[in-house]
Design a binder for these strands. Structure first.
Lengths: 193, 193
DNA sequence: ACAGGTCGTTGACAAATGTCAACGTTATTT
DNA sequence: AAATAACGTTGACATTTGTCAACGACCTGT
């Protein structure tokens, strides 16, 4: 299970991990299993763990005052799951995270962040991922205000084909901010199925 | 003009700037004046400068294939203007940035980023701002998919009152991703003007 | 002071999307 | 294998939003 994380880190940093660093990583990351439908995080809690998904899929969503779910983030293997703001600022989250499939996850607590960041490869990887994430979010914000749904769906298919394979269409619709019926219609109209 | 940047930095970092660091800052930041309506960045260019706004207001927007403008970001005093991805990755931007008012701005080029980051206070401030920006963007993404426009407008009024004072309502509407008529109606309905 | 430009509002109407319900298909559970 | 649940699609209809146009108020430039 740690091998997946180690090779992921080595793929994302310029300096490979040495044996000592690998030992630290194995010490600070704790494996967990989250059963399908089981919560990893519930609204109102502080996000105590960030997790690296080794196997499985998860989603982060909020529930509005009518009880409707709105998916904000989707996670599959090699993605990091968690509400970053709640994790860093130690504030209660408004989100829920649950497992869409049975999920194996390697978790780290905020208390061990300093150890995490003391490893150059981890620090570098973390910085790069944050940057990548920030850029992706800007694109998503821009697209949601300027592109027609058809184009946004096409971009999702191109950029994150994994999501389409791992999540049903109604989750994808929620992630895109529309009703499942609307997404279905748009897909029909564009002949893309 | 540099005084504004210096005191801003000192307000955002735990360790105040010393005289040598202030000298470096004055060396790496170049003042510019951008006239009202003048471009700071145009789509297709690489974003060569990030800028700290000393006085004035600017907006970043994209233009869709029907010629409609979609505002993604607004900037007033003490904000940093620029397309961060284009600046870091040296890729052509899809955005335009222009001055909504006559604007005094302190600019830094990517080539001088290492010097910027060599100053602890600047590095710390930069990290904190990136974090804050990332959290704000997540909130904005979440809100745009789950909250009614009325609530999103109210949140904007509460969180960024400066924007309301410095930009006309049709720019605010564009920033919220709706037509100006729609925003006007929503404001009427909620009795909030 | 005047002319022109910008802005915010409003109504009519078109277009897009949401809600509800139903149904056939597929997947999962028993 | 059968029963149940989940999913994706579709149509009817309601609601929301966008587009267009007009107008009065306010602002800016000469």
């Amino acid at each position: 299970m740690y091998e997946k994380l180690i090779s992921y880190i080595n793929a994302h940093a310029t300096q490979p991990l040495n044996e000592e660093e690998v030992k630290i990583i194995k010490d600070i990351f704790v494996p967990k299993k989250i059963r399908k439908k089981q919560y990893f995080l519930q609204e109102g809690e502080v996000c105590k763990y960030m997790g690296f998904i080794v196997k499985g899929a998860m989603r982060m969503y909020s529930v509005d005052d009518k009880g409707s779910e709105h998916v904000l983030s989707l996670y599959v293997e090699d993605w990091w799951a968690g509400d970053r703001e709640s994790f860093i600022m130690l504030t209660p989250t408004v989100y829920n995270i649950d497992a869409w499939e049975d999920t194996d996850i390697l978790t780290i607590t905020q208390a061990r962040l300093a150890e995490f960041n003391s490893i150059p490869a981890l620090h570098e990887m973390s910085r790069k991922l944050d940057e990548k994430h920030a850029f992706a979010n800007m694109k998503r914000l821009s697209a949601s205000n300027s592109l027609p749904l058809e184009q946004r769906y096409a971009d999702l298919v191109e950029r994150y084909p994994d999501f389409l394979q791992r999540f049903p269409q109604h989750i994808i619709a929620s992630y895109l901010g529309v009703a499942k019926e609307t997404l279905s219609r748009v897909r029909s109209q564009s002949g893309k199925k």
